[in-house]
């Protein structure tokens, strides 16, 4: 059985549906409070997938994800390095993506927990916004997006999701190594402005992975599209498989095949 550690901390609020998405994908998710993990980091060894769900960890008062990122860096870095060395998977959704970026687990150009090179800034609109967006799946080593259609449709719901980089060189490297996994596009698959790009992210970047493709973070919420009726137009369109569930199935299949 593939076991998933769904991280829980004060302010995380997408834990239940994220766990459920993994359950639908055939895994066995367990929600683990950060306080328990801090007390006993080796607990992480029981799992093959580590996921940080969306929410507002600790209120996101300093900056989104900052406090939880710090907590992970200072208490779990050894265990996480070991987890990664064993070829296991890490996923961060929305606030979880912000945590991965701020702890240096993404983009991890050189190594995990490196100094922060990218960030998720306040949306250009300066507002929290909930809307569905089209995303283009790029060709990358990312194991989570292998069977995704070229254009997928998922909801975003955040106020700090504008992906920016420290230098043009970082962006060049991300492109060169195929670490840019998802980009905001319009319904025809072209790069476009607001609201297709809901926050003003550079090059429409919505999700990135590390060079191995086993750490993946994204602003959109795949766990909110795991059944047909989640789609905003299910009353009017013939829909095939929900795009969100594929991401969770990919993770589970990868573990099944490789670990």
């Amino acid at each position: 059985m593939i076991r998933v550690c769904v991280l829980f901390a004060a302010g995380i609020n997408c834990d239940e549906e994220t766990a459920y998405a993994f359950e639908l994908a055939g895994a066995c998710p367990e929600t683990v409070h950060i306080n328990r993990l801090k007390k006993k980091p080796a607990l992480l060894r029981n799992y093959q997938i580590f996921v940080i769900p969306g929410g507002f960890s600790y209120g996101d008062y300093i900056a989104s994800g900052r406090v939880l990122a710090n907590e992970i860096k200072h208490n779990l870095s050894e265990e996480i390095e070991r987890f990664l060395a064993e070829g296991k998977l890490i996923l961060g959704i929305c606030n979880g993506f912000q945590v991965l970026v701020k702890s240096g687990l993404l983009p991890a150009l050189e190594k995990p927990f490196e100094p922060q090179r990218v960030t998720l800034d306040t949306n250009d609109s300066a507002r929290y916004e909930d809307r569905w967006v089209y995303l283009r799946t790029e060709t990358t080593p990312c194991v989570f997006t292998r069977n995704l259609p070229e254009i997928v449709y998922l909801p975003v719901a955040h106020s700090e999701g504008k992906f920016i980089v420290d230098t043009p060189e970082t962006l060049r490297q991300l492109n060169a190594r195929g670490q840019i996994v998802l980009r905001y596009v319009n319904a025809r698959g072209e790069r476009a402005g607001y609201p297709d790009n809901p926050n003003g992210s550079v090059e429409g970047i919505a999700g990135i992975c590390d060079p191995t493709g086993r750490i993946f973070g994204l602003m959109p919420h795949p766990e909110r599209y795991t059944r047909r009726e989640h789609h905003p137009r299910w009353h009017r369109e013939n829909l095939t498989k929900p795009d969100g569930i594929v991401i969770f199935e990919n993770a589970v299949n990868y573990v099944q095949e490789n670990l």
Partner: peptide, 19 residues
């Protein structure tokens, strides 16, 4: 739009509808 209307992944008729 400033409200998260689909957290908990249970909202199947949302505040907005249509094409």
């Amino acid at each position: 739009r400033q409200y998260d209307h689909e957290v908990q992944a249970g909202t199947i008729v949302k505040p907005f509808c249509g094409e």
